[in-house]
């Protein structure tokens, strides 16, 4: 048995190290290009050992520090608020439909699944959010539309509940006089920390990386999130450098725009904070194993 175990360890480490290298190397290339000089990249190409170092890309971003700082603040705010509310709503919706005894259970599951397959598109959603709820150019615009809860997460959590929350436990609690809502947060939630951490991570990535809501529902630049700004820079370069009509007039603007190295710096600036925050979630992945003790 021990040899069996050891062999498994070897295989696991070998496979994961190989895959990890495949993931890290490109990221290193990204970081190295962001600190290369523009000329080096255009002349000699991307390299792990750039001939000439330069922080000009980060200088460019630094010029915009005022808006960047503010945007970081907004991003952190929407990520925290959005993820918390999202976790609450998702688990509250998922738990009842995970219960095999819930009347209309299949209908509700389908109700959720249907939203994953069909959507009305951007225009009607925009009409509803701006006309009925008037959230254009408010912080809600960055939190609510599309992101707050998605069917995918609901069904994922539901599936987790089905497999990992023994119905007997709930019935026992009920018999002990513990109401459904109390049972939910006293028993079900603690049991589901691993999935909550997963969903929490996914939601925070979603909020952190979202630029679409900002582009759609926000025109006031004070409310731009970090990804809004980064995405704006990206699309601008692509747009300007490819529209043959506009550029005679705008070529001066093009030349001032960031290019190769800044794009890389933008990516680094966008990704780093979430990497830093990641270990925070990780605690719970491992914790899940020991939770059996609660039973």
């Amino acid at each position: 048995m021990t040899s069996d175990n050891k062999q498994m360890q070897w295989i696991a480490h070998a496979a994961l190290i190989a895959f990890s290298i495949a993931c890290v190397v490109p990221f290193l290339l990204l970081v190295m290009s962001s600190v290369s000089s523009e000329q080096t990249i255009l002349k000699h190409g991307y390299s792990f050992f750039p001939k000439e170092f330069s922080l000009s890309a980060y200088h460019y971003l630094w010029y915009n520090w005022q808006s960047l700082g503010r945007a970081y603040g907004i991003t952190v705010l929407i990520t925290i608020v959005g993820t918390s509310v999202s976790l609450a709503m998702t688990s509250m919706f998922a738990y009842p439909i995970s219960r095999r005894d819930l009347p209309w259970r299949n209908f509700w599951t389908f109700f959720v699944f249907f939203t994953l397959l069909f959507n009305g598109g951007l225009v009607p959603a925009y009409l509803i959010y701006t006309k009925l709820f008037v959230i254009k150019n408010t912080i809600w615009a960055l939190i609510v539309p599309g992101l707050l809860m998605n069917g995918f997460n609901v069904l994922l959590v539901r599936t987790f509940f089905v497999t990992s929350v023994p119905p007997a436990l709930i019935e026992a609690a009920n018999i002990d006089g513990c109401g459904e809502i109390k049972a939910f947060y006293k028993i079900v939630l603690p049991l589901s920390l691993p999935i909550m951490a997963t969903i929490g991570l996914m939601q925070s990535i979603l909020y952190w990386n979202d630029w679409f809501n900002g582009m759609t529902y926000v025109t006031d630049s004070k409310l731009f999130s970090i990804q809004n700004i980064l995405n704006r820079m990206m699309t601008e370069i692509q747009f300007l450098s490819s529209d043959p009509n506009m550029s005679t007039s705008a070529s001066e603007t093009i030349a001032q725009l960031p290019s190769a190295t800044v794009r890389m710096a933008i990516a680094v600036v966008g990704v780093l904070p979430i990497l830093v925050a990641y270990p925070f979630f990780q605690k719970y992945f491992v914790k899940g194993i020991t939770i059996g003790a609660v039973k």
Binding site: Y126, T216, L240
Partner: peptide, 17 residues
């Protein structure tokens, strides 16, 4: 911003802003 321009004009005009 130019990246959002086309989309934004479509949306604003359909919703009658």
């Amino acid at each position: 911003n130019i990246g959002a321009w086309k989309n934004q004009m479509n949306l604003m005009m359909t919703s009658g802003e």
